[in-house]
Amino acid sequence: MSERDLHSILQKLKTTHNYAESSTLLSRAKITLLKLHALTPQSTTPPTVLLAAREVFESGALLSIRAKDPDAFTRYVHQLTPFYELSSELYPSGSGNGEKNKITGLYLLLLLTQRDYAGFHTELEGLEMRASDAGSGAVEGDRYLGYPIKLERWLMEGSYDLVWKAMASGEVPSEEYSVFSEILTTTIRNEIASCSETAYPSLPISSTKNLLFLDSEGAVVQFAQSRGWVIKDGRIYFPNQSLKASVDEDGNEKEVSQMTIENTLGYARELETIV
């Protein structure tokens, strides 16, 4: 097991498209890295090995995305982070940044689908900082990074139709990104559904189809049933709405008076101790 082995494995890895084969190759590559003490970058690691290690993890990350294995992908991203944080002088010249932006973009998208907005923004903050340092221009302008950022902005302000259009038109920066489209669609559909429950008194089935980006009215009925909506005379009614409101009123009344009493007693007690 040596550096040469590593490179030959890497070569094979790049040419195969078979998942099973690739994953065995990957685990062999990782064992080789471990033996070379290059699983995490050390100050003694030679540049060529660093580069090779980075490529192994990158292909692993992309592979796990294609295999729809988010946990493995997250793991690879975490392993890659120390490699990306090394300064570019440590790598052989001309090797560039590798797939850094693509992988980071995918990671952002993953965080978005998991609705981990805090994680998303934490990651983004770091990107902005480093980008402004390197002078490589705005992060939003990047093909890979701009995509998840745009999606997040639309999701947050509620322009779900734009998200939908972006995904439907298939203008994803690379094929790996389309893996997430399906998950995102479900996410936004649920978002819209929960918005509609409070926003509309009732909805006609025919227009709900467009609202939820569903293909047919049958699908609408199915979806409505899964969320417990009532369908009557070709219209959808949201039973939770009225229920929630009435409970709220009653509970409120009691709570307010109880709270006032508690507070006043508290003030009295405090005054006692002060005076």
Binding site: G158, Y160, S196
Partner: peptide
């Protein structure tokens, strides 16, 4: 905003 649909979704979200 870009479209009426956007406006509708945004308002719905604001209500929720």
């Amino acid at each position: 905003l870009q479209s009426e649909e956007s406006a509708e979704y945004i308002v719905a979200k604001a209500i929720r």
